[in-house]
Design a protein around this nucleic acid. Structure first.
Lengths: 223, 223
DNA sequence: AATCATAAGATTGTTGACAATCTACATTTT
DNA sequence: AAAATGTAGATTGTCAACAATCTTATGATT
């Protein structure tokens, strides 16, 4: 096995899996905002003790996905439409613009290829009416965009904010006005990236994130 | 006691106090970047069990102040000068500008008064050469500025970033070029706030945060 | 009936013991 | 001596029991 290399084994622990499981339960809609989490119930269902469950809760609380006060119940967080529109989305946009400006100078053809792939996924999702596939590809596209900055810290903050927005949209139900718009909007961004025009990329990103998202939310101002 | 109201009693718990104690140890310089945290040692010194200590570690890990991997040691995080200059300070500035624009329309004379008080504290600190007093007042000024936006979520994100920056400056030692500049720089911002000129406030804030901080860091580019 | 007090049960917080894993050092092997 | 192997001790991860606090239901008091 001269040249062969095994891929690195990242040690894991119960609390990491539990954290991921709960997060997954939230983003799959099985746990909705306001739903209560009982440590006992969770640990019994998972077949583990309450210790690691509590640690997972602390992590998710810090991510803003859970709310918890001493001796009081823990519930899934809820983000008001106002907070999403006025705070979360503008912050997300700011971070993403910042990331893209950082990334643009040293972007490679591999990056373009990968972003292209995500757009293809969106197209296929749109064709088959597979909302989950579109959501996943949408997330993957933007996540990769931010990761291209190479700034771990930025990535972490962005993820936190993005997840909060995501949770709000999830509970709102309607995420996109028209599934077919999703790939085309991202294609515009990708094209601007290819041209290497930072200002244009930012302009299109702003269009995409701020305008479309907020318009989508504003439309349902009656609930 | 017709009109009187007691201040709310927020129930607390060991893990909160422990979290605060460790955070305090970091910001007081007793724990420096790279220093190792042993759960056993901490719990014995504090006279508590490891459970709440571990939960506190999870919280601080999520805040970016500690680094921890399964079965590996936990250490105090370190932020490179590059990361602080290129990422953390720009993000901090962005968030603070955002907060100030949100706050400006409904700012009150009470707010102005309070900010004024912090500047007085800076002056007294400068006169007595009390660095800690200046640092505290500086933090309090900006924290209050952000809190005036009324956006809890924004406040949380800002605090996280600010603490990371703070940790870096702490370890660098030299925080201000000249103690006497601190109150005057903040006075400029306060005056712009009084005028209610959002653009001017933002311009001065940018000057204050980006330029002075970064210049201060850049000066010591030899380490 | 509405308010207050009380107690039982449920839930979260904390603890000390045990298990899994890592680290550093000693031992062997080459 | 250098590299590989194998312990012993230290450290982190997990567990199950116990304590503190909250919540709810019940009954007493007005």
């Amino acid at each position: 096995m001269a040249q062969f290399r095994f891929s690195e084994q990242k040690a894991t622990s119960l609390r990491h899996k539990i954290t991921e499981d709960i997060r997954q339960a939230i983003f799959s809609g099985k746990l909705k905002p306001g739903d209560r989490l009982r440590e006992n119930e969770i640990s019994k269902q998972m077949g583990v003790s309450r210790g690691p469950v509590r640690e997972a809760i602390r992590v998710l609380e810090q991510e803003g996905l859970l709310l918890s006060h001493p001796y009081k119940e823990t519930v899934v967080a809820d983000f008001s439409k106002e907070e999403v529109i006025e705070v979360l989305i503008p912050i997300r946009l700011t971070l993403e613009l910042f990331a893209v400006r950082k990334a643009l100078p040293h972007i490679t053809s591999k990056d373009i290829e990968r972003l292209s792939q995500y757009i293809d996924d969106m197209k296929e999702g749109a064709r088959r009416g597979d909302l989950i596939k579109i959501v996943d590809a949408d997330l993957a596209f933007h996540e990769y965009l931010v990761s291209m900055s190479g700034l771990d810290n930025l990535m972490n903050i962005w993820s936190t904010i993005f997840n909060q927005i995501r949770l709000h949209f999830l509970v709102q139900g309607k995420m996109y006005a028209d599934l077919n718009d999703v790939p085309s909007e991202h294609e515009i961004i990708l094209n601007a990236l290819k041209e290497g025009d930072a200002d244009k990329v930012c302009r299109e990103l702003t269009n995409h994130i701020a305008d479309s998202n907020i318009a989508q939310l504003a439309k349902s101002f009656d609930d």
